[in-house]
Amino acid sequence: MKLNKFFYLIKEGIKSIFTHGFMSFACVVVIVACLLIMGNFALLSVNIDHNIKQLESQNEILAFVDETLSEDDARAIGPHLRSLDNVKDVEFVTREEAMKNFISKYEDEDMFSDLTPSTFRNRYVIYLDDLSRMEGTRDDIAAVEGIADVSASLEISRGFIAVRNIVTIVSVVLILILFVISIFIMQNTIKLATFSRREEIGIMKMVGAGNAFIRLPFIIEGLLLGLLGGAIAFFLQMGIYRVLNQRLLASAVGTMIQVIPFATLMYPVLAIFLGLGLLVGTFGSSIAIRNYLKV
């Protein structure tokens, strides 16, 4: 294709966004609406997932050190534990600290005045990378020399994993459904937009325009509208997220959960919105126009 023809077609694509102002507007609105519905939902599930992970990470394994070992010997086990697979972090707690922690949990501290540190054992608090492998890691820890006993709350960790799996499955399914619905709405909007140009396409063909010539302006138009929709949706999403976040923080729930700041999610959200907008705009317009190119 000659260069001046190419530039002409690009110019035509941009121009027709304005000459078909209402249809362009409708397409952008539909793209924005679809992206926002999917975006809000995806962000919600990302946050749920984040909070569950947060709770998970507090789910620790306690490894009690053999009482016959001195504190120094007990501390010497630390590097060994740390080197185990799936261990994220290891924290040594002396029996004195353990006693203090225990007492501080109760208001009436005098009750425990006759308690001595020797009642407690030196211990390690162990955090894991992957909670779902807790059972195996627990066995590995128990096998370490000098560890007398291990306490791990397998039930709780299983519960967390089940909840997270359900959240993931539900959100993937819902997002897929929303995606299919969005594609359907987009397709119809674009069909409507191209329907009004059937005549124009007929004229193009009559004067001997090839399919590429007819298609290119449409695709450029779809591409630009898709990008525009993606960008608008992104800024709206940012606003919605921030407002909801503030409301949530101000409410009672805000103290219990952690909301991921939008800044952290900004670039992935922008990339996905622009990408989806571009994809929907380009594919939508090329599919819609295919029907008119057959004669």
């Binding site: 005549e199 124009e200 007929g202 063909k205 004067v207 001997g208 325009a209 090839g210």
Partner: peptide, 23 residues
Amino acid sequence: RRKLPALRRTLGVIFQDFRLIDN
């Protein structure tokens, strides 16, 4: 089919309803 544009470029076609692009 893809040769049709080449044929149509050797023709000038005129219709009763003019078929101009309005914008």
